[in-house]
């Protein structure tokens, strides 16, 4: 705790839902980045969380931009600041819809071009800002307003797409581990070029669990191996502490599923499929860590 700055760059109080994990994450992102930072925010929950004109809870500049355009806007901004001799942090803070779906072309372009910025996707696994419609990041079986019978297909593996761009740094994080997130943002910002952090951000109204369970839900995602925390520096994988233990002996998937209304009445065969996917994922990371790809 002592290393975390006391300064809050997200003022009291935002218009985030009670128990919102993405505003918790934003607190730590800004603590890590400090005041010489510009956030670029496409349409997402943070468009609202930042506050309504003329007041805002954000005490760093925030550039709001259209849904598909965050990474491209950040490219322009980063280049302008560098042209002016400034090394201000440029951070995209975008939801999963704006990243895995409508914004993926701009994201891919910005990474391929080597833009000097950090792209953070906070992933609540649906279009939360508009009332939980499915996104490409919605997991198999999850009910959303546009998948009322449960999503029939798996979550898009965003990280492997980003990884294919060979960024100098990428990591996953989870709102339940804010200190881990803080360290990862710090490290990312110390490296030039395009960096990426993918945060799992549980959402009480969207996932349909009580607000007080936000941290618990994130921890269960990690403990069951559903969400694996890792870093990848110049391609080299290192599994983060909480996931190391979880990968050796993952908690039963049901513990994560059962508390979430979005997985209510899950068909057993879907649960089996989900379990297989988790196992395969764990094995894939374990093999890579052991040096066999």
């Amino acid at each position: 705790m002592s290393t975390i700055p006391k300064e809050e760059y997200l003022y009291k109080c935002t218009s985030a839902c009670a128990g919102c994990s993405s505003s918790l994450c934003l607190r730590y992102v800004l603590k890590a980045a400090g005041p010489d930072t510009v956030l670029v925010v496409p349409a997402c929950c943070t468009s609202v969380i930042q506050g309504i004109y003329p007041g805002t809870a954000m005490s760093v500049p925030v550039y709001n931009i259209a849904f598909a355009a965050a990474a491209a806007c950040a490219s322009g901004l980063s280049n302008a600041l560098r042209a002016r001799g400034k090394d201000t942090n440029v951070i995209v803070y975008a939801g999963d819809g704006g990243t895995v779906d409508i914004g993926i072309q701009a994201l891919s372009g910005a990474f391929e071009r080597g833009t000097d910025f950090l792209y953070i996707c906070y992933d609540n696994e649906a279009y939360g800002n508009t009332g939980m419609q499915r996104s490409g990041a919605t997991p198999l079986g999850a009910r959303t307003t546009t998948t009322p019978g449960g999503k029939p297909t798996a979550k898009k593996d965003l990280d492997r797409i980003v990884e294919a761009h060979n960024p100098p740094y990428m990591a996953t994080a989870c709102s339940a581990y804010p200190l881990d997130l803080y360290k990862k943002v710090k490290k990312a910002l110390s490296i030039p070029g395009p960096k990426f952090i993918h945060i799992l951000a549980p959402c009480p109204p969207g996932w349909r669990y009580p607000t007080e369970k936000t941290i618990e839900m994130g921890k269960l995602a990690v403990k069951t191996g559903t969400w694996i925390l890792y870093e990848r520096e110049y391609g080299k994988l290192s599994i983060s502490g909480p996931s190391k233990a979880a990968m050796k002996k993952p908690a039963p998937l049901e513990e994560y599923i059962k508390g979430q209304g979005r997985f209510k009445n899950l068909k057993p065969e879907i649960l089996d499929l989900m379990r297989q996917q988790v196992e395969q994922n764990i094995q894939r990371f374990a093999r890579e860590e052991e040096g066999q790809c």
Binding site: P35, S47, V48, Q50, G51, I52, Y53, T56, M58, S59, V60, P61, V62, Y63, N64, I65
Partner: peptide, 8 residues
Amino acid sequence: PCVYGPMT
């Protein structure tokens, strides 16, 4: 610091 183009 300013927020550009917030909810209006």
